[in-house]
Nucleic acid binder design. Structure first.
Lengths: 206, 206
DNA sequence: GCCATAACGGGACTCCCGTTCCATTAGATG
DNA sequence: CATCTAATGGAACGGGAGTCCCGTTATGGC
């Protein structure tokens, strides 16, 4: 048995290997943003990245696994979080950041494609879930502070509050052709604050 | 020019043609629910539907276009809407219906795959948007009634309220591996009511 | 019930995706 | 700087997806 030797890149991750990975991931991101998951062709990615086809097939194997690696890369680049001192201010800043990202032609298309890939493959789904776990954890403290300030009831599920801000924006991105304007972002933040104040996000037991 | 003759099925839509379409769409739904968009193979769909490969390639051409037709078919089957007399009751019924659908292994996987397909192709996206437009329109009246009863402020964007109920459920389905339990559905309904009561969904001007 | 033809279905063909083999390049270690 | 070998990349190969051609079926109109 002995786990199939080792994946390429795990023994000698420096120099060229890292450069190849960076070039391939960038090319994959571009291709995804342009054509979506269905048009993601490993041969074309190799061409764009100026890398041998064989290398791409060997190291990533399938489009969905390539996306999984792309997600792992995206998860490492964390954005700085702004602090305004009030819950509404913090959540609005978050909502506007999410909106700006999703409304950007390249980034928006990329996120759509990445979500699509996660629906096709369990490993990719795991990578996507991890990505959002990290993002939610990064913003969760501002809700925690609101609880400590007395703005929100004790026992509030702080992570669920953060997710409630993003949800309507992603829902609109995927199921509607209406533009993601800043008003939608502000509404998402306000709705979340209203619900959180009403105690909707308190976990009853446990 | 003269629009490339006519699509198959438009001149003689009865009998066999309709039977073929039904068989193919059912097979496509099964295949999508099992393997997701990436594993949707037109040849296999033809085999499952006991239909000639040529027919499937000629009438639908690509996986995404097949999904677009599947969506048009799904949009026609509308679910009956329950009425409880209160806004929270109606929205909770809606939320639980959505949750039950998405939590069902086959239906949930199918919805994921359909959303994935919509991210790859404009026509499929249009079909998906139309599907949700119809669903939202079907539930919008219960919010309208709440406005008329005085439960919600005048000028409330009733459709946006309906969307606010679904959003967190879809967001969880796609970006998390947490189970879609009934508590999540109830929370979505309660959060939406709290926000709507606070006037978050009133459109300022226009 | 009969005819014209829309739509289907089988088989052959082509092309490209994905794999395999091996020579070449360039990290890592001393 | 020399050596070992992980990792890359070119070339050739096999198989299956998608297309084309044409005969067959059965629908809609009279």
């Amino acid at each position: 048995m002995a786990t199939e030797s080792t994946d390429p890149g795990s023994v000698r991750p420096g120099g060229r290997t890292a450069r190849v990975r960076a070039a391939v991931l960038r090319a994959a991101g571009d291709a995804l943003a342009e054509g979506g998951l269905a048009h993601l062709d490993l041969a074309e990615v190799a061409r764009r990245a100026e890398v041998g086809r064989t290398t791409v097939y060997r190291r990533w194997g399938s489009p969905t696994q390539l996306v999984a690696d792309l997600l792992a890369d995206m998860a490492e680049q964390s954005l700085p979080r702004t602090e305004t001192g009030t819950l509404l201010g913090d959540l609005r800043a978050n909502a506007r950041l999410v909106r700006r990202t999703l409304a950007d032609p390249r980034q928006g298309a990329l996120f759509k494609a990445v979500i699509a890939a996660a629906t096709c493959d369990d490993q990719t789904a795991a990578a996507l879930h991890r990505f959002y776990e990290i993002r939610v954890d990064a913003w969760q403290p501002c809700v925690q502070q609101a609880v400590e300030r007395g703005e929100l009831p004790e026992g509030t599920d702080t992570r669920e509050v953060v997710r409630a801000v993003s949800a309507p924006l992603y829902y609109r991105l995927l199921t509607s052709d209406a533009p993601l304007d800043e008003a939608a972002a502000d509404r998402a933040a306000e709705a979340t604050v209203a619900a959180a104040r009403a105690g909707v996000f308190t976990r009853s037991a446990e």
